[in-house]
Write a protein that binds this DNA or RNA. Structure first.
Lengths: 213, 213
DNA sequence: TGTTGTGAAGTCGTTCACAGCT
DNA sequence: AGCTGTGAACGACTTCACAACA
């Protein structure tokens, strides 16, 4: 068993494993080998064993992995057993979609505050199910008051860096960034970028050169 | 100048370069060196030169790259000079957000059709700006009739594989998949996954082990 | 016997360092 | 003199292959 420097790719695969184990569990399967799990995930079995080895010895030699046990272990490792307090900055099209997106909840991300440069223009449904939209100047006080840990940035590219700085200044330590910009933040802050535009261009690239090899 | 096997990471960076070059162009900058561009993108200069070398010799030794020229070249390579005809499957929360998302348009992705298992429940604004939502059974005929090339999957995980097969059967050759599933498709079809859930778990992981080193 | 855990080998992408142009 | 283009060195992640062990 090792420690330190877990590849980013390994962490992402852990999610996959957890999801597959959920399925296997529902199918009533108790034990699974790295071979079987690998073929379900479209990976090499050794990959899975190596990934898991970063965190401990979860298997039984000659047998395999106990599905439910491994699943629980992975969830613990991924930190999805507790919930996170989240603030959303940007209540335009994308932002409003994100507030409504149920995936956040199922992953333990609860949106406790929403900010926008123009709160009155915000496109969120104004019923009680969603937090009221506040101005960007309220970021620091609200985030502190509500003990928020994570920020989601869904503002236009030009505004993103400024908002990031406010969030960081308010004490946030994780950011999920949807703006097409590389944010500059102190190194204790973890940023995850989700850049739809670049995914689109990348798809576009592969499709363009389809018939011109 | 080489050919074949362009790393996925290279393609993604090409998007970044194009975006930076847009900025530089707006700032009135005519010429840029790999050094300058690299520091703007937070990369190693050699990386940029290597990336570009996959596609040709765009620079002038002793001088640098002509901003506008390189920008146009990159856009051509990325295939963002022409537009794509797109269909969206899934008109729930996420799907509706995507129809409204302007980024698709700016990248030349035009949504010409929207499908959902229950068209009448769809959450799209019903005004003329958005395509009418059709049942999943209409996929094949509509996609063929409208010459649609790309499908976006925003249906629940359980339904994703089935929808993918219908799309492929209708002649689509690119898929942008938002469902947390690895789709099985013929190899002439290019799939790009955008898995918010796995991004969240990955963020969650890094935050969990923040104070426990 | 069957499957894990892991050192060693292999592969792929990044960075270095310099020759080659302008 | 300065900066690109690129072979070679490096490093990181993946796969192999086998010893360890239930």
């Amino acid at each position: 068993m090792k420690r330190l420097k877990i590849p980013d790719a390994t962490v992402r695969r852990l999610s996959d494993y957890a999801r597959m184990l959920d399925q296997l569990d529902e199918e009533g399967i108790r034990i699974v080998s790295s071979d079987t799990l690998a073929s379900r995930c479209g990976l090499n079995p050794a990959q899975i064993r190596k990934d898991l080895a970063y965190f401990g010895e979860f298997g039984v030699r000659g047998v395999g992995y106990r599905v439910r046990e491994l699943k629980e272990n992975l969830k613990g490792i991924l930190g999805v057993t507790h919930t996170w307090r989240v603030a959303l900055a940007g209540a335009g099209n994308l932002g409003s979609a994100l507030v409504a997106y149920r995936g956040f909840l199922t992953h333990g991300f609860i949106i406790h505050a929403v900010f926008d440069k123009y709160p009155e223009r915000a496109k969120l449904p104004r019923n009680g199910r969603f937090p009221k939209v506040l101005g960007l100047d309220r970021i620091k006080t609200e985030i502190r008051r509500r003990g928020i840990q994570i920020g989601i940035i869904a503002v236009p590219a030009e505004a993103a860096q400024g908002v990031a700085e406010r969030l960081v200044g308010a004490g946030i330590f994780g950011i999920l960034n949807f703006a097409p910009v590389r944010l500059r933040v102190p190194k204790h802050v973890k940023v995850k970028n989700v850049d739809l535009g670049s995914e689109l261009e990348s798809l576009s690239f592969f499709l363009s050169k389809r018939d011109t090899p």
